[in-house]
Design a binder for these strands. Structure first.
Length: 266
DNA sequence: CGTGAGTGATCTCGAGGCAG
DNA sequence: CTGCCTCGAGATCACTCACG
């Protein structure tokens, strides 16, 4: 995919869009909205590990911009770690929800995103803050409950996202609430991948975070997938599953389910 | 020449538009 | 209605280039 920014001829500095602000968020004030939830996802394209959804709620009547926050991809790991507690204090409510690789396999990535987002939403609502609108990164609303779910049975939640969802392409680049959500989601998922790395150190998850690096794919080819791999994906172009699972034994569904990540952690 | 930052290529899946 | 293509999102990594 082409990048969002182009190099400016004759200059090293790119023609980067301005730092994200609350300008777009404040347009919701005219609709009488006070609490707006910025939502972003991380881990969508990874081969292993959970998909995670961050929510950062802003109070449009009182919130001030938080310096330094940008889309998590544009920040170094150290900057993200530094900003994570600041974002959580800055937000009137913040949460990260996860859906495991096994849930991605059984539900599909979009439904798994919804599951992770709903878990985060439950955490937010449990604090007593109920956002009146949602600002979602991208062009597709995967957060609202689907009318027609997949063939698989979807878990039923007492609290699902019932607020109107507004999608915006590149919202993480322009909208501070969404950028803030991307930071906390990325930090939390990275921590989880470092923990999973202790269990399966050969894959280099502390570095690649479950993404398809050369090392990751080489080990995957040699050792086979772990319970944390999204085996329904064409992990290695479809020639993966001949070797069985890493660790030398195959796991049944129940055993694989034990590898699930805790929901709504954070 | 070393370093740091940005670009482009790479991989994943799903949604939506369009042609047949 | 079906299949294909484009574009949306996520990320890492090799390469390029400006600067000190």
């Amino acid at each position: 995919m082409p990048p969002a920014v182009k190099a400016r001829p004759g200059s090293k500095a790119p023609l980067r869009s301005k730092a994200p602000s609350l300008r777009h968020e404040r347009t919701f004030k005219a609709q009488g909205i006070r609490y707006l939830a910025g939502v972003d996802e991380v881990g969508r394209g990874a081969l292993a590990g959970p998909v995670s959804v961050g929510i950062a709620v802003v109070d449009l009547e009182r919130q001030k911009p938080l310096a330094g926050v940008r889309d998590s991809k544009l920040l170094t790991p150290a900057e993200r770690e530094r900003l994570d507690p600041l974002v959580r204090r800055w937000s009137v409510a913040a949460a990260v929800g996860h859906a495991s690789a096994q849930e991605i396999d059984s539900l599909g990535i979009i439904a798994a995103l919804r599951l992770a987002g709903t878990r985060a939403w439950q955490d937010v609502v449990s604090t007593g803050i109920r956002p009146e609108a949602v600002l979602l990164d991208g062009s597709h609303n995967w957060l609202s409950p689907a009318e027609q779910l997949s063939l698989f049975e979807e878990p039923v939640f007492e609290v699902s996202c019932d607020a109107p969802v507004h999608t915006k392409v590149k919202a993480d680049m322009q909208c501070l609430s969404v950028a803030a959500a991307s930071v906390i989601a990325k930090v939390e998922r990275d921590r989880m991948m470092r923990e999973l790395h202790l269990e399966f150190p050969d894959f280099g998850w502390d570095i690649n975070k479950g993404y398809a690096t050369v090392l990751h794919r080489d080990v995957l080819r040699a050792a086979g997938p772990t319970p944390y791999h999204r085996v329904s994906w064409r992990l290695l172009g479809g020639d993966l599953l001949d070797g069985g699972l890493a660790g030398g034994e195959e796991l049944g569904d129940e055993e694989r389910a034990e590898g699930e990540v805790p929901a709504g952690e954070g």
